[in-house]
C-alpha cells in the first residue's frame, strides 16, 4: 500500500512538475514577445544572431543534407526498382526532404550547434550576474537576449532548411543518376512535377515552429540555469545545456509528428 501511494505521489509530482515547467516557459515566451515594444532596437542584434546561427550550422547542414539525399537515393532506388519504377526516385527524394527530413534535420543540427551555444552563453550570463546587471540598467533581458535570437531563428531556420533541401536533392541525384544509372531527365521531372505548394508550405510551417520551440527552450534553460537551486556553479550551465539539447530535440520530433498529422 505504501509503495502504491509512493508511486502515485511520484507520478503526481512528476506531472505537476511538467505543468509548472510548461507554465513558466509560457510566461517566459510571453515576456519575450513583450520585448518587441521596448528598447533597445533589435535590428543589429538580430543580424548578428542570424550570422551566428548560419555561421555555426551551415557546414553541418550542407554535410548532413548531402548524405541524407544520398541515402534517400540509395534506399529509394532499391525500393522502387523492385516494382520497376526507378523513374519515381526524384519525387521520392524531394518529397521526403521538403516535408520531413529538411525541417527536422536542420532543426536538430541547429540545436546541436547554435542552440547549445546560446544556452551556455545565457547560462554563463546568469551565473555571473550579467543578467542582473542588464536588469539594473533598465534593459529588459528577455528583449535583449532572447527576442533577437528568436527573430533571427525565424529567418535562419527556413533558409537553412532550404539549403538542406537543395543539397539533398543533389545528393540524391549523385547517387541515383550518377551511381545507379537512373535517367537524369526522369529524376528532375519527378522532382519538379511532384512538388506542390502544399509540401513547401508544410516545410516552412515546420521550420518556423521548430525555430520557436528550440530557441525558446534553449534560452529558457540558460536563463534559469541554477536559479531554482539558488546556485551559481559551472555545473549549472553544463546541466542546462545538456537539458536544452535533449529537450529541444525531443520536442522537435514530437512537434513534427503533430504538425504532420494535422496538415496531411
Amino acid at each position: 500500500m505504501k509503495r502504491l501511494t509512493d508511486t502515485f505521489g511520484f507520478v503526481g509530482r512528476w506531472i505537476l512538475g511538467i505543468f509548472v515547467g510548461l507554465g513558466r516557459i509560457g510566461i517566459f515566451f510571453l515576456s519575450t514577445l513583450r520585448g518587441i515594444a521596448y528598447p533597445p532596437s533589435k535590428t543589429g542584434l538580430v543580424i548578428k544572431q542570424i550570422y551566428f546561427i548560419g555561421h555555426k550550422s551551415m557546414f553541418v547542414i550542407i554535410f548532413t543534407g548531402a548524405f541524407s539525399g544520398m541515402v534517400l537515393g540509395l534506399q529509394g532506388y532499391y525500393a522502387l526498382s523492385k516494382f520497376g519504377s526507378e523513374g519515381f526516385l526524384g519525387s521520392g527524394v524531394i518529397l521526403s526532404l521538403v516535408r520531413e527530413l529538411g525541417p527536422v534535420f536542420t532543426a536538430l543540427m541547429v540545436v546541436g550547434r547554435a542552440c547549445s551555444a546560446m544556452c551556455a552563453e545565457i547560462g554563463i550570463m546568469r551565473i555571473d550576474e550579467q543578467i542582473d546587471a542588464l536588469r539594473c540598467m533598465a534593459i529588459d533581458p528577455h528583449g535583449y537576449l532572447v527576442l533577437p535570437r528568436l527573430m533571427a531563428a525565424l529567418i535562419a531556420f527556413p533558409l537553412l532548411t532550404h539549403v538542406f533541401d537543395v543539397v539533398g536533392v543533389w545528393g540524391g541525384y549523385a547517387v541515383g543518376v550518377k551511381l545507379l544509372g537512373v535517367n537524369p531527365g526522369a529524376y528532375w521531372d519527378g522532382v519538379y512535377r511532384s512538388l506542390e505548394w502544399q509540401d513547401i508550405w508544410m516545410g516552412i510551417v515546420k521550420s518556423l515552429v521548430f525555430a520557436v520551440l528550440t530557441i525558446t527552450i534553449s534560452t529558457y534553460k540558460g536563463y534559469y540555469a541554477g536559479v531554482d537551486r539558488g546556485s551559481r556553479g559551472a555545473e549549472d550551465v553544463s546541466e542546462a545545456t545538456t537539458s536544452a539539447v535533449v529537450t529541444s530535440s525531443v520536442t522537435v520530433l514530437v512537434a513534427d509528428y503533430i504538425i504532420t498529422s494535422i496538415m496531411l
Partner: peptide
C-alpha cells in the same frame, strides 16, 4: 537613476570594455 558595481564586476564578456560602458548610453 542608479548605477551598480557588482561584487564580481559582472561585465558582459562578449563585449569589449568600451562596449560594456557604452551599452546603457546606446540603449537609453
Amino acid at each position: 537613476r542608479i548605477g551598480i558595481l557588482f561584487q564580481n564586476g559582472a561585465l558582459f564578456n562578449s563585449m569589449t570594455v568600451a562596449q560594456n560602458i557604452a551599452l546603457p548610453l546606446m540603449v537609453h
